[in-house]
Amino acid sequence: MEEQEIYLLITRYLQKETTTEENEVLADWITDSADHEQTFEEIKLTWQHTAQAKNEESTIALTRLKDRINHQADNIAKIKKLTPFKWNLVAASIAVIGLLLVSLIYFLRSNNSVSVTYNLLKTRAGEIKNITLIDGTKVSVGPKSILRYPSAFNSAFRNVSLDGKAYFEVSKNTHQPFRVNTADLSVKVLGTHFNVNASKNQILTTVSLLEGKVEVNLNSDNDDAYLLKPGQELTFNRANQRVFQHNVDSLTALGWMTKTLNLSNDKLSDAAVNIENMYGVKLIFADQPTADTRIYAQFKGDSIEDVLTIICASGNLEYRKQGNKIYISAK
């Protein structure tokens, strides 16, 4: 049999698309020779390794689409609310023209809200951007994060989406709650100061509250809402779907704003993401014991070289910097 034919037969078999007859042909071919068997195993291994990788862009795109769907739903809800009001007018008034005018105005208003545009604020590694939204809410967006916000808040909620870290000082408006949507949860607030750390490629999402009151809703569970008090922090673990509540460690939660790194007996592998995002580098550990080294240290505005020197000194390690890659190994 020709090579092309057999290669395709094997992949169709792995994709479970072959007929019984084809399976028999394939089985015969495999048992023909040791070479054939090896080819089969190699293609099988290759095929298995090419399974679709988790794609970050898809999750970001999904959040965007959800915004659009929610936005649409908000608009529909507005229009529905108007209907009884309209009928009351019909009953009470003979001024048909007046009524038409009123509904026309409402119609135009609800249509206007469709023309809201959305903006993306993206930060690179090591970069922090500050922005004041149209409602006066101040946001500091941490390194390697994406904040998506509308040009106007016309729906029932002031909705923004976040992938990454951000600190919010929400301006008060009890009639239009502010809502931060992330991959795993949403945070609803009236007016308060809080930090959200929710990156799609990180298992843990943390919401830290400094002032005021927030309500956290998990995307996976619509019924349960968690209320946080000032000084409290909620962590959601995507891997085991667990929620933890503890007190805010403000240095860990807000350290990124002042380029502060706080390692309190943390494993290097856990701190790696923070270091990488803050300095725009990539850490590569020589082996598991190196990655598991626990470090006590605190840095504020230090250079990456200083950070590495101190980490290596206290963990008995050494590092080699090559471009933006940093190789760390035991001494």
Binding site: E3, Q4, Y7, L8, T11, E42, I43, L45, T46, W47, H49, T50
Partner: peptide, 12 residues
């Protein structure tokens, strides 16, 4: 398909 599999398999 054939080219892709061949390329991936050989480099893999």
């Amino acid at each position: 398909m054939y080219r892709a599999i061949k390329f991936l398999k050989e480099n893999f």
